[in-house]
């Protein structure tokens, strides 16, 4: 047996190499949303992904998170190569390995804050009591302990964003993808949320990609990667 690296020695959270994504439009023409994208994230690294609208930021996050399949290229998250995964394998992968904070907040409207966190466990691993303890702890950390029983409609924009962050962390992911987490918030709230995101990531040692087109956000991250027309530049 060769000295294969064990899971504990994995030092990268994400390795994308030469990833390409082509959308075929209704009229048969192709849109290249991502072109030979190569990106590596350390296991506790926070990277800002900066670029103008339509440059492929969401596409990159979706592919890294197993929501979208790449046209070409290799994607490894933690120790799992998801390049050839079937839809079913990707579902399982999303349950276990990644957390998302979507561009639009997308909480389940008829569930309160705590239940919105627990839904991740209900749909996935079904651990029960440990999940409840984890949800309560996350709500506490996010300053939402007294809002646990509130429905999304009873929360402010910043509070909803924090619930979404808590939901993304429920499955203890190796990688969290934040798609413009502050775009709907004013500057001050945005900074508070970024502060919170950084604390949560750094205290857990979790890797993250934070998509933004706001340069001011980038200093909360370890480094920035720029994307223009589907091409990454450091």
């Amino acid at each position: 047996m060769n000295s294969a690296p064990s899971a504990t020695t994995v030092t990268t959270a994400l390795e994308m190499s030469n990833v390409r994504k082509v959308y075929t439009m209704g009229d048969g023409s192709d849109v290249v949303a991502l072109d030979h994208a190569t990106l590596t994230l350390g296991s506790d690294e926070m990277v800002a992904l900066v670029g103008p609208s339509g440059s492929g930021k969401t596409t990159l996050c979706s592919i890294a998170g197993g929501i979208l399949s790449a046209t070409e290229g290799r994607i490894v998250v933690g120790d799992e190569d998801i390049s050839g995964h079937s839809a079913k394998e990707l579902t399982k992968f999303r349950q276990d390995k990644v957390g998302f904070v979507f561009q639009s907040v997308n909480l389940v409207p008829f569930l309160n804050a705590r239940e919105n966190l627990l839904v991740v466990d209900e749909l996935g691993r079904r651990t029960g009591a440990p999940a409840k303890a984890r949800a309560d702890q996350l709500l506490e950390e996010l300053g939402l302990a007294d809002r646990a029983k509130n429905l999304p409609s009873q929360l402010s924009g910043g509070q909803r964003q924090r619930v979404a962050i808590g939901r993304a962390l429920m499955n203890d992911p190796a990688l969290v993808l934040f798609d413009e987490p502050t775009s709907a918030l004013d500057t001050k709230l945005g900074e508070q949320v970024m502060e919170l995101i950084r604390n949560e990531m750094k205290s857990r040692g979790t890797a993250a990609i934070v998509v933004t087109h706001d340069e001011r956000i980038t200093h909360y991250c370890d480094r920035s990667v720029h994307i223009i027309d589907g091409r990454l530049e450091a």
Partner: peptide, 16 residues
């Protein structure tokens, strides 16, 4: 549709 999309993104199976 969008709610179900979110649930699927969070790992929900179609059967669930």
């Amino acid at each position: 549709t969008s709610l179900y999309g979110v649930l699927k993104a969070l790992g929900a199976k179609s059967s669930t």
